[in-house]
Write a protein that binds this DNA or RNA. Sequence first.
DNA 1: CGCTTAACGCAAATTATTTGTGTTAAGGTC
DNA 2: GACCTTAACACAAATAATTTGCGTTAAGCG
Lengths: 192, 192
Amino acid sequence: MKVHKGIRTGGRSARVQKAVHEAVHELLSSHDREALTVPMIAQMSGVTPSTIYRRWGDLPSLLADAALDRLRPDDDPVDTGALATDLKQFAEAYLDETGSELGKTMLRDVVASGDNGTTMRCAEIARCRLAVIVERAQKRGQWTPSVDQLVDGIIAPMTYRILFDRQPPTTKELFVMVDRCLIREKVEKPKD
Amino acid sequence: MKVHKGIRTGGRSARVQKAVHEAVHELLSSHDREALTVPMIAQMSGVTPSTIYRRWGDLPSLLADAALDRLRPDDDPVDTGALATDLKQFAEAYLDETGSELGKTMLRDVVASGDNGTTMRCAEIARCRLAVIVERAQKRGQWTPSVDQLVDGIIAPMTYRILFDRQPPTTKELFVMVDRCLIREKVEKPKD
DNA sequence: CGCTTAACGCAAATTATTTGTGTTAAGGTC
DNA sequence: GACCTTAACACAAATAATTTGCGTTAAGCG
């Protein structure tokens, strides 16, 4: 007898998730983040508040979940043929997604949700895309920094500035970060 | 006629702030973060809930404010006589403060507060201490990275891992980050 | 000393959240 | 494909948090 978990993913549950997520995005495009409430989202999605509370726990968790759901299905980063330009292209795209006022509130909610699964899911998105770029470069026989080093050198400073500083980094500053990641490697592995 | 702001800092207001901050820390040492509520803090501090709401807005903002208040008055980072060791000592101390479970919830609340003043105040704490270390080294005639570069290279990766990753960095990883900041400079300024 | 008003206390009104109970249907079994 | 088991939901009642109106206190200032 296989007990397993028994978490339900299809049918009604899927329908509820879709309706709620859509309601969040619709409300977020017309209202201020501060103005959103769980009962409001419940009404717009045709779902009972208690259902939302039981499933997502609280507002930040729901908003984070809805935001990450949108962030995910983007296709692979563009292949420019060189590691440096691949990274710069991706960094710029990622800044577009997270550096705006909406992106900032999204990152905020991800952190505020307090759920490790959600924060790690967010980190995984960037990590996966970086992994694609790295693997590509390695297939070309090119030396690359590790994904961890790229996260530390690009994603982390960008995110830190968005969340803690007055302004997100400029594209120029972003490119400097990328170049540093690559210069750095030439030092640590001078034999190339 | 000088209108100014007229914000009151002394007397009763100061007394209320002190009482509330103390109540937060006391409750935080005996209860789970999740269990804390504004009415609870209000009762323990002998203050009306509405006062807290009017002054701090919400729970995360209050907790962030109370936490940063504790974080600040620490004295200057120790002077070991060398930039590298000064930075490592500070990085380790900062990890102690923010890497624990309590430190993590503190960073969470700072971000979740959604108040730019609070997040920047948090960033300033690290930035000020780094500035002291940098200035010290420069007085010794030593070449140093800029404070911004140190934030990007040490504080940002540390904070990102604490907030988004499963584990905070180890001391060893932290030292590698510090070394990278210094190695990097030798490349960019090879004339030393 | 006296004035102005920011900051507070209190209580009522509003709104959000939790909880108890019955119903629906997803996922599995035979 | 009919038949369980129970996760996920709707609804409503109970509880708790938050906002708001208004009177009072005292901080900052001339």
